[in-house]
Simulated assay, not measured.
Amino acid sequence: MIPRLALRSSLRMGSRAFGTHKTPLVLSPQEVNNLAHSKAPVAFLDATWFMPNSPRKAREEFQSKRIPGAQFLDLDEVASSHELGLKHMMPSPETFANACGELGISPSSHVVLYDNHGVFSSPRALFMFRSFGHDKSSIVNGGLPRWIDEGLPVETQAPTKHQPAEYPPPSIFSQNIRSYEDVLANSAFNPKDNINVELVLDARSSGRYTGQDPEPRPGLSSGHIPNSKSLPFNLFLQKNVTKEGGEYTTVLPPAEIRRVLEETIGAEELEDVINGQRSVVASCGSGMTAGVIWLGLQLLGAKKAALYDESWTGYAMRETSPIVKSA
């Protein structure tokens, strides 16, 4: 029996191929610096986000240090409200358009996103822009730490608010987003049995996936969605050390991302994902680091990659959710 969800997804996703963008998904700091000195309209956005239990404050760090001309994108504010109180859910077209307009972004702007980790929350922001059809968008590979480490200029005075711009509400590519109902229906089927079943990749740590380690959110069960596979997001990243001894992450080259995926799901299955025979859904704790998995898939040209917006927090909060606790 073919799951109706997966078959519907297979049909509806055929019109959108994320692997064919002309604007690079990832830029080095020097490439970004060159872009900043070109005549093209560029909008820099600091999309830093920290876990709720972190002592670091993203907006405060932005106020003290940023790429020159950058504005702050608060992913928890540019979001839709949720019945379970979940944060940074995908915004409505109107919310997205209003935020872009207030940040001085027009539909013709090349939006360059970065974060203070290196690569952590910027891919989620990139997913948002690309899902609203703003294909002129990229992330800084290595974020602000690499930018500084390479000796590029930093702005430390109070940020200047940009002149508002016109940004009409865009259409959202809903085929890139999965709901709880989508994921729950899909979880009843094993991807090995039918190519129409979507492959769910869980970006959380392996301990949280197996249920051996607790979730960082108090009272939330660990474990995983039935028939999902564990793929910790940091497997797509490389740790780097600055001249000052600090650390930051960068995205692995596509060849290394391919190797990781082949080890996780198998070479044949990966080819099905890349050529669009198999749909894949990235999930994580709250929908943030799933963006790293989504980005890696885009760098390989995967044609049908989506993101489970609520991710594990929304899934595990519901009593109707089957939870598996094993390897």
Rank of each mutant, 00 (worst) to 15 (best):
L5P: 01
R12C: 12
S15M: 09
F18V: 06
G19N: 09
T23G: 09
Q30H: 15
N33E: 13
L35K: 05
S38V: 13
S38Y: 11
L45F: 07
A47I: 06
N53S: 12
R59Y: 11
S64W: 01
K65R: 09
G69E: 15
A70N: 09
V78D: 15
A79M: 08
S80K: 06
E83K: 05
K87N: 11
K87S: 12
M89V: 10
A97M: 14
C100F: 07
E102W: 12
L103Y: 12
I105W: 06
Y114Q: 07
G118F: 15
V119K: 11
F120E: 10
R124K: 08
G133S: 13
H134L: 13
W147Q: 02
D149R: 05
T156F: 00
T156K: 07
K161T: 14
H162D: 01
Q163S: 13
Y167M: 12
S171Q: 11
D182I: 04
V183M: 09
A188G: 00
A188C: 05
N190E: 04
P191Q: 10
E198N: 04
L201A: 03
Y209Q: 03
E215G: 06
P216I: 07
P218F: 09
H224N: 00
S228L: 05
L231T: 01
P232G: 06
L235D: 03
L237W: 07
Q238H: 14
Q238D: 12
Q238W: 04
K239W: 05
V241R: 03
E247L: 15
V251C: 13
L261W: 04
E262A: 07
G266S: 07
L270H: 04
E271V: 03
D272S: 08
V273D: 00
I274M: 05
Q277D: 04
V280T: 00
G285R: 00
G285F: 05
S286C: 01
T289G: 04
G291D: 06
L295D: 00
G296S: 02
L297M: 08
G301W: 00
G301S: 00
A302C: 14
L307Q: 01
L307K: 00
Y308D: 03
S311R: 02
S311T: 02
T313C: 09
Y315W: 13
M317P: 01
R318L: 04
I323P: 00
S326A: 07
